[in-house]
């Protein structure tokens, strides 16, 4: 208790007397004065306030900001939102393009494959199997001529035949029938009776088309030949037509090379 009189100013040492450090120490000695207690209380409050404020500042929310700062923040957020929005839209567009591009590619590939399959069946470069009918025309008197067979092919196509084979010759768009000296020639190859015609398509439609009055079966029987028609659920047209690249015909360039779906 060096300081006896409470509230009295500290003794004023002459400048340059005991070192400032010592003066500070002497001042720091605990004194049981009312003012000292009050100062301690204020110091506690100050420490408490500092800690509180620091903590508050670390967990600062928007509620402690002033209006102008809030407006600034809002402006920034709006600006940023607009930028991000635009970016999102661009990315969305890119994504849509990519997605439609990939699915479009797959779809185009599938369409091209389907088209290739049907073209190969039409061109006779692929074996075809499916339901259909098999006709056997036995012609002991050699009365059946090429127009009769051509008629048969025509009638079958009319009835929806998709792949036709006579004996072991595939009938395609370019097939031609000739009445040669030795008999019927199809695509330059002679065909000998009995003629076996295999056609893939709807069996009922085709066989009824063959059997209608005035149709092929009747014509053939009038010529003295016999015809048997059997429907089948699973036939194979196994003969192939050799594909020759066209020498003269060229496709006309299309505006859109994409295959029709």
């Amino acid at each position: 208790m060096s300081q006896a009189k409470p509230g009295a100013p500290a003794p004023d040492p002459a400048p340059g007397d005991p070192s400032p450090g010592r003066r500070l120490l002497r001042m720091a000695r605990p004194r049981a004065t009312k003012a000292n207690a009050l100062a301690a209380l204020l110091a506690i409050l100050l420490g408490f306030a500092v800690a509180t404020q620091v903590r508050q500042n670390q967990s600062l929310g928007l509620e402690s900001l002033r209006q102008s700062e809030l407006v600034n923040i809002l402006d920034n957020a709006t600006l940023r939102e607009r930028t991000l929005d635009q970016t999102a839209r661009e990315l969305q567009t890119t994504r849509d393009q990519l997605v439609s591009g990939s699915t479009g590619g797959a779809a185009a590939l599938k369409a091209a494959q389907d088209r290739l399959d049907s073209l190969r069946i039409l061109a006779g470069t692929a074996r075809a199997s499916g339901p259909g009918i098999r006709m056997t025309i036995s012609d002991p008197g050699s009365k059946v001529t090429s127009p009769v067979l051509l008629d048969a092919v025509q009638e079958l196509r009319d009835a929806g035949a998709e792949a036709i084979q006579i004996n072991n010759i595939r009938i395609v768009a370019s097939s031609h029938f000739n009445q040669g000296a030795s008999g019927i020639e199809i695509d330059g190859k002679s065909v000998a009776p009995p003629y076996t015609i295999t056609a893939i398509g709807d069996p009922a439609t085709m066989s009824s088309a063959m059997e209608i009055p005035g149709g092929l079966a009747e014509n053939v029987r009038q010529l003295g030949a016999t015809i048997t028609i059997t429907q089948s659920k699973d036939l194979t047209v196994g003969a192939l037509h050799p594909l020759n690249a066209p020498r003269y015909a060229r496709p006309v360039p299309q505006q859109t090379p994409a295959p029709a779906p």
């Binding site: 000292n36 110091a43 100050l46 800690a51 509180t52």
Partner: peptide, 18 residues
């Protein structure tokens, strides 16, 4: 000395009481 201790006490209280 007492005020300095008070400052520390206040800091501690503020830090622990949230």
């Amino acid at each position: 000395m007492i005020p300095a201790l008070g400052l520390l006490v206040g800091l501690a209280v503020g830090l622990f009481l949230h």
